[in-house]
Design a binder for these strands. Structure first.
Length: 677
DNA sequence: GATCCTCGAGTTCT
DNA sequence: CTCGAGGATC
């Protein structure tokens, strides 16, 4: 056999492999529907790499092995866009959209018609332009200022959802527009790797996408989890007559188009789509900041034309901003039930993520120093996946002259007692203890809270009044309140007063763990309270316990043991407990159980995490039942977690469980777990 | 002594 | 949810 023949068969095989790999890439990265296992894909890829290494003359630029060039670029050459990349007009309310639709109908001379729109999510990424010549990817560019961008071809080639060659017949030249983005999961992985390596992390998905595309070394870009959705075109000789048909053609060429694209009818259809996507937003794998509506008909688009830098036939309907700028008016200090002073930034009210935010916690003085926040600063507020707003960063360039570093007050803003900060601790504390009304108030709120004595109706406002009027100083005072005293309070009729008395009465038959939690022993929360109750069975037994006996409990070390022992040794606490008992507080006593007995419970040693909403029980009830069987119920998933129980609409814990390979139970699985003995 | 994990405490707005 | 700190473990 002569070698041209060998070369010929190698060339045939190489072509075959390229076609297969390209097909699998398309299935995996564009359609999200892989048809072969990863191992098979890897095998084909290795075979092609070997073949091309042996016969370098077979390497074609659109071969899947040629995505990463290995060449470090010197910079990014400027690219003049053949057709300018425009921006979109923004709308923030339904009335903005109604006005947009009205303008279109008027301009088209069809004031009573319902216009067809093509609706799609607006991704939070980076707009790029992809030029295909003779069906091959020839040029990729950033948007830049809209007229001139940068040549990022080498980097875009590394995105496997961007086809190097279009499938099927394509025009001689065509320019596609799309949005490159990084899904949440990719960003999270990238950031945790960066954090582990001590490198800086990206603040959001858009920065990560932009930063990844501006890498001089395409090999770095190749490692970044970037994806693309194509949404339009710049240059196209003879595009389809409707927006949605155009997108369908892009998909046929193998370009990735958002699966959320819908054709909708009239302004009502647009708003319905907006609500549907808004509801779906949390389940999407990537960040979106709104939706875009485009007039379906190309003829209408042409008739409508452009204003300044945006088309008249399209608009972006934005979700309420999740990040906003505002100014710090003041930095106040709150006093918690343990006396900890927490600095809070009082902000110029600003709308973030659909609510008005006027406060944001600063946690402690270290945090203030880290973020370098001062009164008068302009700050970025975020209300990301979480509900609680936070100060992300300070815009130092906007800092007015003469600002000062915030100082910890020397005295408690509530009671005037001295404030101390123990060396090495982040928290500063008010030393007022029982005498500080703020601490009293917070301690009472904690005592009455749902997870402690659960006194219904004794909320924030009421506690405040009771403390202010000095009717209540400590929990035992609650049990001495009379109907007449209560009725005289603001917004308190006889009916409410007697309801409250009934609730207080009811709380006398609480459980020991709840009472122990409610007392507010430093460092003792729900879990430790349960452990103490299991081991000792009654307040009296606990009061009589030695430091060593307390220390012997699992999860209680020297610090906690000293705190607990010290609490019960304190004469004031002993008197308070005595008075509570005299006024009728009688938690159900349980048999104190030795460690061996505790270990014999059906779910002993198991750690369970709950997420999502369960159909038949509240999470609280489930947690109680699990604990009653000896399981620990915790809030975060780790490799030590035995089970994650996932209900409807689970949070991020489910993803974490899957990542760590923790068994996930549904409600049926939970029932089975609870029935074990 | 370092590291990982868990618990506690505080937090926003409607 | 996030941070800090105590506890457990290697």
């Amino acid at each position: 056999m002569s070698w041209p023949q060998a070369l010929e068969s190698a060339a045939r095989r190489a072509l075959e492999l390229r076609e297969l790999i390209t097909k699998y890439d398309h299935e995996y990265y564009v359609l999200d529907r892989p048809s072969v296992p990863d191992a098979e894909y890897d095998r084909l890829m290795r075979e092609l790499i070997a073949l091309e290494a042996k016969h370098p003359e077979l390497i074609a630029p659109d071969s899947p092995t040629q995505r990463v060039s290995g060449q470090v670029g010197a910079g990014f050459a400027p690219v003049r866009h053949r057709v300018a990349m425009l921006s979109l007009d923004n709308a923030f309310s339904e009335s903005d959209i109604e006005a947009f639709d009205r303008r279109i109908r008027t301009r088209l001379g069809r004031p009573d018609a319902a216009i067809d729109y093509c609706a799609e999510p607006k991704l939070d990424g980076l707009a790029v332009s992809l030029t295909y010549r003779q069906g091959k990817l020839a040029l990729a560019a950033t948007r830049g200022d809209g007229t001139e961008g940068e040549d990022i071809t080498a980097n875009i080639r590394t995105l496997r959802s961007v086809p190097l060659a279009l499938r099927g017949p394509a025009p001689a030249e065509i320019e596609i527009r799309g949005e490159v983005f990084m899904p949440f999961e990719g960003l999270r992985r990238l950031n945790s790797a960066a954090a582990a390596a001590g490198e800086k992390v990206f603040a959001n998905a858009r920065n990560a996408a932009a930063g990844s595309l501006r890498q001089l070394d395409p090999r770095i870009t190749a490692t970044r989890p970037l994806e693309i959705f194509c949404y339009g075109y710049g240059y196209w000789e003879d595009p389809p007559a409707r927006q949605s048909e155009m997108l369908a053609q892009l998909a046929r060429w193998g370009l990735r188009v958002s699966p959320e694209v819908r054709s909708v009818h009239g302004v009502a259809g647009c708003l319905e789509y907006f609500r549907a996507i808004g509801a779906k937003r949390a389940t999407l794998a990537y960040q979106i900041d709104g939706v875009v509506y485009k007039v379906e008909s190309r003829a209408d688009q042409e008739a409508l034309g452009y204003v300044a830098r945006a088309p008249r036939w399209a608009i972006a309907h934005k979700f309420p901003a999740e990040e906003a700028l505002t100014v710090v008016r003041e930095i106040g200090f709150q006093v918690g039930r343990t006396g900890v002073l927490t600095p809070v930034a009082r902000l110029e009210p600003v709308a973030v993520g659909g609510v008005t935010v006027s406060n944001a916690t600063l946690h402690n003085m270290d945090e203030i120093a880290r973020k370098d926040v001062r009164v008068g600063d302009t700050v970025v507020i975020r209300r990301a996946g979480d509900v609680i707003p936070e100060i992300v960063s300070v815009l130092l360039e906007r800092r007015p002259a003469g600002t000062q570093v915030p100082q910890l007050p020397a005295r408690c803003p509530i009671c005037g007692a001295e404030v101390v900060r123990i060396e090495g601790e982040a928290a500063a504390r008010c030393t007022g203890a029982f005498t500080c009304p703020a601490q009293r108030q917070e301690a009472l709120r904690h005592f009455a809270s749902r997870r402690a004595l659960d006194i219904e109706g004794l909320g924030h406002k009421l506690v405040e009044q009771l403390v202010e009027q000095d009717l209540v100083r400590s929990p035992s005072d609650l049990y001495a309140l009379t109907l007449q005293q209560l009725s005289e309070l603001e917004r308190m009729g006889e009916k409410s007063a007697s309801n409250l008395l009934a609730a207080i009465e009811h709380s006398k038959h609480t459980t020991l763990p709840r009472l122990l939690n409610g007392l507010g022993i430093p460092g003792v929360g729900e879990t430790t309270a349960k452990a103490l109750a299991d081991r000792f069975g009654s307040i009296e037994a606990l009061q009589a316990a030695s430091l060593e006996e307390i220390h012997a409990i699992e999860g209680v070390g020297p610090v906690l043991a000293a705190s607990i022992h010290g609490f019960f040794a304190d004469e004031r606490h002993r008197a308070e407990l005595k008075r509570l008992r005299e006024l009728g507080l009688a938690p159900a006593e349980t048999a104190p159980r030795a460690p061996e007995a505790l270990a014999a419970q059906p779910l002993a040693g198991m750690t369970v995490v709950l997420t999502g909403t369960l159909a038949t029980m509240t999470r609280e009830e489930v947690a109680d039942q699990l604990r009653a069987r000896g399981a620990k119920v915790t809030g975060s998933v780790s490799k030590n977690t035995s089970y994650v129980v996932a209900g409807a609409d689970p949070g991020s814990k489910l993803a974490r469980a899957q990542e760590l390979g923790v068994t996930v139970l549904d409600e049926a699985g939970l029932k089975e777990l609870l029935s074990r003995r």
